[in-house]
Nucleic acid binder design. Structure first.
Lengths: 218, 218
DNA sequence: CCTACCGATCGGTAGG
DNA sequence: CCTACCGATCGGTAGG
């Protein structure tokens, strides 16, 4: 009986895309739609009406969920950063005993490319390229999350620096490495033919980055 | 006598900033003002009225010089790229006989930082971060200029790769190196106390970049 | 969350 | 290049 309830409820709703889960968390749908549109068109070039339409709402309805457009932008960024931090901890959490610093950096970079270019990768690019559109108080909130994310990189880079594999000073090196990675959003086009090709490409990018930044162990 | 002519003419004009050269090339003034505002606020967040006000025009007057707002954006980018190419050729034009590839790359990077972060450095950052706002036909024009600018880098990187000082494949290395450099627009704050400090800092950035990307000559 | 709506702003134009 | 203006769009709100 309860198995039949779902489709019945879905049919009873106003016209929505067929098969869309309609379990009431419209707020999340707004955030995802906003992320996608903000990434493609930019924050200023995207109207709240467009976002509403994409999730099947009327023009004023997003403001039931968010006080204003800026708050929606902030929500996109917070959502993206929290996911990125959680996934980074899961993937690169603590060093295995026999793991080299180079290997730890490889994992961090590989995960970062995933966050930038992989599936569901609209949130972080929006955060990187729409920073300017936040209010100052909002920037502070995001800065804290960004610091959390970057904190995992510092000891790894420091270890590589101490070992002579990273010559540049750690502070500037971190900024330049993130630049090299983050810029890929501007030029990388995933080979969409199949997901395996995309994964392979991100692996290649990771290897290239390591070759570029690190020297061989002396 | 001719020494007195200048202030007299300036006084006779309608209210403009004191001492401003008013020699009629209003088009250039619009381009410079647009570059500054586009960089600070973004293209979409800057109105043509703001630009007009900044150069002392009325709201409709920019459209006497430019067909529409997008054309003004294109003019900013073209202006920036032409200057950057000319200055790059002047600074890093042809290799001196005894000049190493590493030294040639140093010059290219140092000049690039100057274009990104030095004085009068509004144009290229606008080009880098407002690409999305161009019409497709306009993008083609800018792409050609960008290819000209980047052409000078290829043989240098290739030579370094052949010599084993640059391990990563040249194509991807170029993209990542430009990323590392271009991203500095997001975090670099020039020490404005005096111009010497700024120059020194850009020199430091250049040295760090070389340390990061290149290995010692085997 | 929809309906109905508002004030503000924006890019752009005609006509001189 | 200014004056005067327009149509369109936008973020946001009241009231249910």
């Amino acid at each position: 009986m309860s198995e039949l309830a779902e489709p019945k409820r879905a049919r009873g709703r106003p016209k929505k895309t067929e098969g869309e889960r309609d379990d009431g968390n419209r707020r999340q749908a707004l955030i995802s739609a906003a992320a996608q549109l903000f990434k493609r068109q930019g924050y200023d070039a995207t109207s709240t009406r467009e976002i509403a339409t994409q999730v099947g709402m009327q023009s004023g309805s997003p403001f039931y969920h968010f006080g204003n457009k800026q708050d929606l932008l902030l929500a996109v960024m917070v959502e993206g950063m929290k996911q990125a931090i959680a996934r980074q901890m899961a993937a690169c959490g603590q060093a295995s005993p026999g793991q080299s610093a180079r290997e730890r950096l490889r994992q961090l970079i590989r995960h970062h490319f995933d966050v930038l270019l992989g599936p569901d990768s609209d949130f972080i690019p929006v955060m990187l390229y729409e920073w300017r559109s936040l209010a100052p108080a909002q920037r502070k909130a995001i800065t804290e999350l960004k610091d959390d994310y970057e904190a995992a990189w510092i000891p790894v880079l420091q270890a590589l620096h101490d070992a002579g594999q990273l010559q540049a000073p750690v502070g500037l090196a971190r900024l330049m490495i993130f630049g090299a990675l983050n810029w890929s959003v501007q030029w990388y086009e995933p080979a969409r033919k199949n997901s395996r090709a995309t994964r392979a490409s991100l692996d290649e990018l990771t290897d290239t980055a390591l070759q570029l930044f690190l020297r061989d162990k002396p």
